[in-house]
Design a protein around this nucleic acid. Structure first.
Lengths: 144, 144
DNA sequence: CTCAGTGCAAAGGATTTGCATGCCG
DNA sequence: CGGCATGCAAATCCTTTGCACTGAG
């Protein structure tokens, strides 16, 4: 699936008039290898040769192209993960103490009921839903 | 319930060694009167006599005391609402175009199943859950 | 040669903080 | 009176932007 991932990333960037450069590929690789959304400092930590400004710029471009997704939790840093359709649908455990985020999933049945309830709400309010977010906020095992 | 609200706010602040001043009360009033979380510019807009820095400071204090809750969505501003236990449990429609946030609720049955699934997840990961967040992200009727 | 991608350094903007003043207890 | 709350202005810090350089086509 990794090969596919890069092919998809490349296609989406091209569709947006952008190239799939080594730097951008490196960012996608880092995100794909992680089981949690990463902040830019964390990304730079893993790949010291990446320039901060370029990381910001490239992640913004990758986000516009629909390759990565930016999330804001409770601390001061944005975090990035692969776009929803490039991973499996999942949710986040957010530690309000250290800010760390971990992925998790819920049973398909629950997810399904949720979808149904949400689409009803959206229809009622004339809201065009694109996605939903379900996060659990609390304290992670380490901070506890 | 408004009287109770202020009594509760006052008690919680006192427990945190803080006073319930007119400015703080004004902020709580504004949030209680709104059917959506508000940004600080929005709060200042409603009450022009509030100083920006004091608003920031007081909201931080109110948050520490458990009276208000800060949420970060997709745009650059934080938004504030009354703490979960001072309102009814609800969720948010987040417009990714204008950043506006509207409250909504889901049927108790769905909410209940969700709680059950989440507490199972939390237990499995040694995560101490404090609350959950369920948001619908998309485009509001106005921006559509 | 051209033009996008990159790195560095400087600018931006929401939020925070230092400090002098005012007010409640 | 004492100490916290307030307002103003300056400082912070994540993020964005300007600009010159480099490399791919």
């Amino acid at each position: 699936m990794t090969a596919d991932l890069h092919a998809t990333a490349s296609t989406r960037l091209r569709a947006d008039g952008q190239r799939y450069t080594p730097r951008r590929r490196a960012l996608v690789d880092l995100l794909a290898d992680s089981d949690q959304p990463l902040t830019i400092p964390q990304l730079l930590e893993h790949r010291k040769d990446l320039a901060q400004s370029s990381a910001y710029r490239n992640l913004a471009i990758l986000e516009r192209a629909g390759v990565v997704h930016r999330i804001v939790t409770t601390d001061e840093f944005s975090r990035y993960e692969l776009a929803e359709d490039l991973t499996e649908h999942h949710h986040h455990l957010i530690c309000s103490s250290c800010g760390d985020v971990t992925d998790f999933t819920v049973p398909a049945a629950v997810e399904h009921d949720l979808e149904a309830a949400l689409s009803k709400v959206a229809k009622r309010s004339g809201f065009r839903a694109r996605s939903h977010r379900l996060d659990l906020v609390g304290t992670c095992a380490t901070c506890e």
